[in-house]
Nucleic acid binder design. Structure first.
Length: 222
DNA sequence: TGCCAGGCCGGGT
DNA sequence: ACCCGGCATGGC
Protein backbone atom coordinates (compact mmCIF):
# COMPACT_ATOMS: atom_id res chain seq x y z
CA UNK A 1 0.00 0.00 0.00
CA UNK A 2 1.33 3.36 -0.99
CA UNK A 3 1.75 5.86 1.79
CA UNK A 4 -1.48 7.90 2.15
CA UNK A 5 0.42 11.08 2.83
CA UNK A 6 -2.56 13.39 2.51
CA UNK A 7 -4.61 11.28 4.90
CA UNK A 8 -1.78 11.08 7.39
CA UNK A 9 -1.34 14.83 7.35
CA UNK A 10 -5.03 15.49 7.93
CA UNK A 11 -5.17 13.10 10.84
CA UNK A 12 -2.09 14.53 12.49
CA UNK A 13 -3.28 18.08 12.03
CA UNK A 14 -6.69 17.28 13.50
CA UNK A 15 -5.10 15.43 16.41
CA UNK A 16 -2.36 17.92 17.26
CA UNK A 17 -3.19 21.21 15.55
CA UNK A 18 -0.61 23.72 14.30
CA UNK A 19 2.83 23.16 15.81
CA UNK A 20 4.16 26.68 15.21
CA UNK A 21 7.61 25.57 14.09
CA UNK A 22 10.50 26.32 14.08
CA UNK A 23 10.95 27.67 17.62
CA UNK A 24 13.24 30.70 17.26
CA UNK A 25 13.12 34.46 17.06
CA UNK A 26 14.95 35.02 13.79
CA UNK A 27 16.07 33.14 10.70
CA UNK A 28 19.62 33.25 12.02
CA UNK A 29 18.68 31.74 15.34
CA UNK A 30 16.74 29.04 13.52
CA UNK A 31 19.77 28.27 11.39
CA UNK A 32 21.99 28.00 14.45
CA UNK A 33 19.41 25.78 16.12
CA UNK A 34 19.36 23.49 13.09
CA UNK A 35 23.03 22.68 13.64
CA UNK A 36 22.81 22.44 17.41
CA UNK A 37 19.87 20.05 17.38
CA UNK A 38 21.68 17.33 15.42
CA UNK A 39 20.86 14.10 17.23
CA UNK A 40 20.08 16.07 20.37
CA UNK A 41 17.03 16.85 22.50
CA UNK A 42 15.68 20.34 21.84
CA UNK A 43 15.70 21.18 25.53
CA UNK A 44 19.50 21.03 25.51
CA UNK A 45 19.66 23.27 22.46
CA UNK A 46 17.56 25.92 24.19
CA UNK A 47 20.16 26.38 26.88
CA UNK A 48 22.93 26.78 24.31
CA UNK A 49 20.86 29.34 22.42
CA UNK A 50 20.22 31.18 25.68
CA UNK A 51 23.96 31.44 26.23
CA UNK A 52 24.45 32.95 22.78
CA UNK A 53 21.65 35.44 23.31
CA UNK A 54 22.99 36.42 26.72
CA UNK A 55 26.43 36.99 25.19
CA UNK A 56 24.76 39.18 22.56
CA UNK A 57 26.29 37.23 19.70
CA UNK A 58 23.16 35.92 17.99
CA UNK A 59 24.06 37.39 14.61
CA UNK A 60 26.45 36.21 11.90
CA UNK A 61 29.33 38.65 12.29
CA UNK A 62 29.37 38.63 16.07
CA UNK A 63 29.13 34.86 16.32
CA UNK A 64 31.86 34.34 13.75
CA UNK A 65 34.07 36.67 15.76
CA UNK A 66 33.78 34.49 18.85
CA UNK A 67 36.92 32.36 19.28
CA UNK A 68 36.31 28.65 18.70
CA UNK A 69 37.10 27.61 22.26
CA UNK A 70 34.67 30.18 23.68
CA UNK A 71 31.99 29.22 21.21
CA UNK A 72 32.37 25.57 22.16
CA UNK A 73 31.97 26.45 25.82
CA UNK A 74 28.84 28.50 25.15
CA UNK A 75 27.12 25.72 23.24
CA UNK A 76 28.24 23.00 25.62
CA UNK A 77 24.73 22.15 26.90
CA UNK A 78 23.76 21.08 23.37
CA UNK A 79 26.21 18.17 23.47
CA UNK A 80 28.86 17.23 20.86
CA UNK A 81 29.99 20.75 21.55
CA UNK A 82 33.46 20.47 20.03
CA UNK A 83 32.25 19.17 16.67
CA UNK A 84 29.24 21.47 16.66
CA UNK A 85 31.43 24.51 17.28
CA UNK A 86 33.43 23.59 14.17
CA UNK A 87 30.28 22.91 12.15
CA UNK A 88 28.75 26.21 13.19
CA UNK A 89 31.89 28.06 12.23
CA UNK A 90 32.01 26.35 8.85
CA UNK A 91 28.46 27.56 8.23
CA UNK A 92 29.19 31.05 9.55
CA UNK A 93 32.24 31.32 7.34
CA UNK A 94 30.05 30.60 4.33
CA UNK A 95 27.38 33.12 5.31
CA UNK A 96 29.85 35.85 6.17
CA UNK A 97 32.21 35.41 3.25
CA UNK A 98 29.69 34.71 0.53
CA UNK A 99 26.85 36.97 1.63
CA UNK A 100 28.45 39.40 4.06
CA UNK A 101 26.34 37.87 6.82
CA UNK A 102 23.03 38.61 5.11
CA UNK A 103 20.64 35.68 5.29
CA UNK A 104 18.27 37.62 3.10
CA UNK A 105 20.91 37.63 0.39
CA UNK A 106 21.68 33.97 0.99
CA UNK A 107 18.05 32.90 0.65
CA UNK A 108 17.72 34.86 -2.56
CA UNK A 109 19.83 32.11 -4.13
CA UNK A 110 17.81 29.52 -6.01
CA UNK A 111 16.77 26.59 -3.85
CA UNK A 112 18.67 23.82 -5.65
CA UNK A 113 21.85 25.89 -5.83
CA UNK A 114 21.77 26.96 -2.20
CA UNK A 115 20.98 23.42 -1.12
CA UNK A 116 24.07 22.14 -2.91
CA UNK A 117 26.18 24.88 -1.38
CA UNK A 118 24.97 24.08 2.12
CA UNK A 119 25.60 20.37 1.60
CA UNK A 120 29.17 21.13 0.58
CA UNK A 121 29.81 22.65 4.03
CA UNK A 122 31.51 20.21 6.35
CA UNK A 123 29.03 19.22 9.06
CA UNK A 124 25.90 20.21 7.15
CA UNK A 125 24.09 17.09 5.95
CA UNK A 126 20.75 16.76 4.17
CA UNK A 127 18.48 17.23 7.17
CA UNK A 128 20.32 20.24 8.52
CA UNK A 129 20.44 21.82 5.06
CA UNK A 130 16.74 21.24 4.47
CA UNK A 131 15.81 22.53 7.93
CA UNK A 132 17.74 25.73 7.25
CA UNK A 133 16.16 26.15 3.82
CA UNK A 134 12.63 25.47 4.99
CA UNK A 135 12.48 26.95 8.47
CA UNK A 136 14.96 29.80 8.23
CA UNK A 137 14.47 30.56 4.55
CA UNK A 138 10.85 29.62 3.96
CA UNK A 139 11.87 27.65 0.87
CA UNK A 140 9.81 24.58 -0.14
CA UNK A 141 12.05 21.62 0.61
CA UNK A 142 10.79 18.69 2.67
CA UNK A 143 12.72 17.92 5.85
CA UNK A 144 13.15 14.22 6.55
CA UNK A 145 14.17 13.12 10.00
CA UNK A 146 14.42 9.98 12.04
CA UNK A 147 10.75 10.19 13.00
CA UNK A 148 9.52 10.45 9.41
CA UNK A 149 11.65 7.44 8.57
CA UNK A 150 10.47 5.45 11.58
CA UNK A 151 6.77 6.25 11.29
CA UNK A 152 6.68 5.41 7.59
CA UNK A 153 8.79 2.28 7.92
CA UNK A 154 6.82 0.89 10.84
CA UNK A 155 3.62 1.22 8.82
CA UNK A 156 5.23 -0.59 5.92
CA UNK A 157 4.99 2.42 3.60
CA UNK A 158 8.72 2.43 3.00
CA UNK A 159 11.50 -0.03 3.71
CA UNK A 160 13.55 0.29 6.87
CA UNK A 161 16.50 0.77 4.57
CA UNK A 162 14.98 3.74 2.71
CA UNK A 163 17.47 6.56 2.50
CA UNK A 164 17.03 10.29 2.99
CA UNK A 165 16.40 11.25 -0.62
CA UNK A 166 14.04 8.40 -1.24
CA UNK A 167 11.81 9.61 1.58
CA UNK A 168 12.16 13.26 0.65
CA UNK A 169 11.23 12.52 -2.96
CA UNK A 170 8.23 10.50 -1.84
CA UNK A 171 6.77 13.46 0.06
CA UNK A 172 7.65 16.00 -2.60
CA UNK A 173 6.27 13.92 -5.45
CA UNK A 174 2.89 13.41 -3.79
CA UNK A 175 2.36 16.69 -1.96
CA UNK A 176 2.09 20.14 -3.52
CA UNK A 177 5.32 22.10 -3.38
CA UNK A 178 4.30 24.30 -0.48
CA UNK A 179 6.65 25.53 2.21
CA UNK A 180 3.88 26.05 4.76
CA UNK A 181 2.63 22.49 4.23
CA UNK A 182 6.14 21.02 4.48
CA UNK A 183 6.75 23.06 7.60
CA UNK A 184 3.65 21.82 9.36
CA UNK A 185 3.97 18.25 8.14
CA UNK A 186 7.51 17.78 9.39
CA UNK A 187 6.62 19.30 12.75
CA UNK A 188 3.61 17.01 13.05
CA UNK A 189 5.71 13.94 12.27
CA UNK A 190 8.11 14.89 15.04
CA UNK A 191 5.16 15.37 17.37
CA UNK A 192 3.57 12.01 16.66
CA UNK A 193 7.01 10.45 16.86
CA UNK A 194 7.71 11.88 20.29
CA UNK A 195 4.28 11.05 21.64
CA UNK A 196 3.74 7.60 20.14
CA UNK A 197 6.66 6.33 18.10
CA UNK A 198 9.85 6.55 20.07
CA UNK A 199 12.75 4.30 19.35
CA UNK A 200 12.29 1.56 21.92
CA UNK A 201 8.68 0.50 21.52
CA UNK A 202 5.75 2.29 19.92
CA UNK A 203 2.65 3.14 21.97
CA UNK A 204 0.15 2.67 19.21
CA UNK A 205 -3.05 2.48 21.28
CA UNK A 206 -3.93 6.15 21.28
CA UNK A 207 -1.96 7.11 18.18
CA UNK A 208 -4.02 8.92 15.53
CA UNK A 209 -2.46 6.64 12.91
CA UNK A 210 -3.16 3.36 14.72
CA UNK A 211 -5.82 2.07 12.33
CA UNK A 212 -3.45 2.57 9.40
CA UNK A 213 -1.16 -0.12 10.75
CA UNK A 214 -0.98 -3.34 8.75
CA UNK A 215 -2.32 -6.44 10.53
CA UNK A 216 1.04 -7.95 11.14
CA UNK A 217 4.12 -5.86 11.10
CA UNK A 218 7.70 -6.12 12.14
CA UNK A 219 8.84 -3.38 14.44
CA UNK A 220 12.53 -2.81 14.21
CA UNK A 221 14.48 -0.57 16.56
CA UNK A 222 15.17 2.11 13.97
C1' DT B 1 20.47 3.30 35.74
C1' DG B 2 20.68 2.80 31.06
C1' DC B 3 18.57 4.51 27.04
C1' DC B 4 17.54 8.07 24.06
C1' DA B 5 17.36 12.63 21.56
C1' DG B 6 14.61 16.89 15.36
C1' DG B 7 22.85 13.91 12.46
C1' DC B 8 27.07 13.73 10.31
C1' DC B 9 31.62 12.23 9.36
C1' DG B 10 35.58 9.03 8.84
C1' DG B 11 37.72 4.67 8.78
C1' DG B 12 37.60 -0.24 8.00
C1' DT B 13 36.01 -4.10 5.34
C1' DA C 1 28.79 -0.23 -1.26
C1' DC C 2 27.99 -1.11 3.33
C1' DC C 3 28.75 -1.07 8.44
C1' DC C 4 30.26 0.92 12.62
C1' DG C 5 32.15 3.87 16.11
C1' DG C 6 32.86 8.65 17.75
C1' DC C 7 30.99 12.77 19.19
C1' DA C 8 28.37 14.58 24.72
C1' DT C 9 24.87 16.78 27.43
C1' DG C 10 20.60 16.33 30.07
C1' DG C 11 15.85 14.18 30.92
C1' DC C 12 13.19 10.29 32.20
Amino acid sequence: MAAPLQEIYERLFIAFGPQDWWPGDSPFEIMVGAVLVQNTAWRNVERAIENLRDADVMNPHALYAVPSAELAEMIRPAGYYQVKAKRLRNLLKFVVEEFDGSLEAMFATSLPTLREQLLSIHGIGPETADAILLYAGGLPTFVVDTYAHRVLARHGWIGYDADYHEIKDLFESILPQDAQLYNEYHALLVRVGKDFCKRAEPKCDACPLVDLLPKSRIVEPL
